[in-house]
C-alpha cells in the first residue's frame, strides 16, 4: 500500500552520470578536507567529471538544528543552493557526501515542492538576487553512486585491502529517510558489499545502527557524561568484534567517532584506537589514489596500523 521503502540503485539513479554536481559539506571541509578530495579523485578514476560552486552555502541543516532561525530561513537557504545547481549546471544531478546535507536537502526540497506557499515565499527571498528554485534538481548521496558503480569499482581495485576488518557506520540521517532508500533502514548491507569488492572483510557489530552521538556539535556542548557512555557503548561493541577500521558516509559522524576516542580513553573507556574514515577515502585507498590526496593526517586516531596491514606502512 505504501510506496516501497527500498529500491535498487538503478531505479534510483538510472544510468551512470558523466558529470555530477558535488555539494560540499561544511563539517567535511573543516574537519576532514581529505574526504572531499578523495571523493573527487575516486569519481575521476571512475570517469565522472565533478563540478562544484563557490557560491554554495551551508545546507541549512545547522540553521535548523541550532535553533537560531525560523524554518523559513532554512527553506530559503535550501532553495538558493538548489537554484544555483539548476541555473548554472542545468541537467546535472546533485550529490552530497554528508548524510546531514543529503537529509536536509531532501527533506526541505520535499517541503518546498509540496507546499506552493513556502515555495513562493522562498523564491521571493532569493529572487532579490536573481535566483529561482523550480524543484527540478535531483538530490542523491554519493554512496548511492558507489553502489551503482560497484562492478566498475571492483574492477579498478589496485590496492586490495587484504582482508582488513572494516565495519560500517551508515548514519541515521541517511537511513531514517522514509522512502526510496537503497537498503533496509535497520539492517543495511550495501556498504558491506562495497567492502567485499575492495578486498576487505566486512564486520557486523551489535550497535552498528546506533547514532554516532554528533548531532550538531553536541559532543562538545553537552556534558561528557552524556555523550561518552553513548559513544562507548557503540565502540565497545565494535571492539568486541575486532574491528580495525570504521567507515562513515557523513563527516559529522566521522567527527564524533574519531575525535572523541582520546577523551574516552582518558575517562576509562576503551581504549579503542579504531581509525574512522569516510567510505570515499576507503575506496580511494583501494583504487590507488595518492595518499596525499586522501588526507589521513586530519584524523585523530592515526591510520598507521591500517596502512601497514595493506602494505603501505611507513617503512614500505
Amino acid at each position: 500500500m505504501n510506496s516501497p521503502r527500498v529500491i535498487t540503485p538503478q531505479e534510483r539513479l538510472g544510468t551512470k552520470p558523466e558529470k555530477v554536481f558535488l555539494f560540499r559539506s561544511c563539517t567535511g571541509s573543516m574537519e576532514y578536507p581529505g574526504t572531499e578530495s578523495a571523493i573527487k579523485e575516486v569519481l575521476k578514476k571512475l570517469g565522472i567529471e565533478v563540478v562544484m560552486d563557490p557560491d554554495q552555502t551551508c545546507c541549512s541543516g545547522y540553521i535548523l538544528t541550532c535553533s537560531g532561525h525560523t524554518p523559513e530561513a532554512s527553506l530559503a537557504v535550501t532553495a538558493r543552493n538548489l537554484s544555483i545547481v539548476e541555473q548554472r549546471y542545468a541537467g546535472l544531478d546533485m550529490f552530497c557526501f554528508c548524510n546531514g546535507c543529503f537529509g536536509y536537502n531532501t527533506e526541505l526540497s520535499h517541503i518546498l515542492k509540496h507546499h506552493p506557499a513556502y515555495m513562493k515565499m522562498a523564491n521571493e527571498v532569493i529572487g532579490q538576487w536573481g535566483y529561482e528554485y523550480k524543484g527540478q534538481v535531483r538530490i542523491f548521496h554519493v554512496q548511492e553512486l558507489y553502489y551503482l558503480l560497484l562492478d566498475e569499482i571492483r574492477a579498478k581495485v589496485v590496492r586490495p585491502l587484504n582482508g582488513l576488518r572494516v565495519a560500517s557506520h551508515y548514519g541515521c540521517h541517511y537511513l531514517a529517510q522514509q522512502y526510496g532508500l537503497l537498503d533496509d533502514g535497520d539492517l543495511p548491507t550495501f556498504h558491506e558489499e562495497i567492502f567485499e569488492a575492495l578486498g576487505a572483510t566486512p564486520v557486523f557489530y551489535k550497535e552498528r545502527r546506533m547514532c554516532c552521538g554528533y548531532a550538531v556539535g553536541r559532543g562538545f556542548t553537552h556534558k561528557e557524561s552524556v555523550v561518552q557512555p553513548h559513544l562507548g557503548r557503540k565502540l565497545d561493541s565494535a571492539k568486541e568484534e575486532g574491528v580495525e577500521l570504521i567507515t562513515t558516509t557523513c563527516p559529522g559522524c566521522n567527527v564524533a567517532l574519531d575525535r572523541e576516542q582520546n577523551n574516552l580513553a582518558a575517562r576509562g573507556f576503551g581504549p579503542y584506537n579504531i581509525p574512522v574514515i569516510d567510505l570515499g577515502q576507503l575506496i580511494g585507498l583501494a583504487l590507488g589514489v595518492d595518499l596525499d590526496k586522501l588526507g589521513f593526517e586530519a584524523n585523530t586516531i592515526p591510520l598507521d596500523g591500517v596502512l601497514e596491514r595493506i602494505g603501505l606502512g611507513k617503512g614500505a
Binding site: 521503502r5 527500498v6 533496509d184 533502514g185 535497520d186 539492517l187 543495511p188
Partner: peptide, 11 residues
C-alpha cells in the same frame, strides 16, 4: 516482513 528491518526477519 522485509519492511521490518528492526526485527531482522530474513536476516
Amino acid at each position: 516482513l522485509s519492511g521490518y528491518g528492526e526485527y531482522g526477519h530474513g536476516s
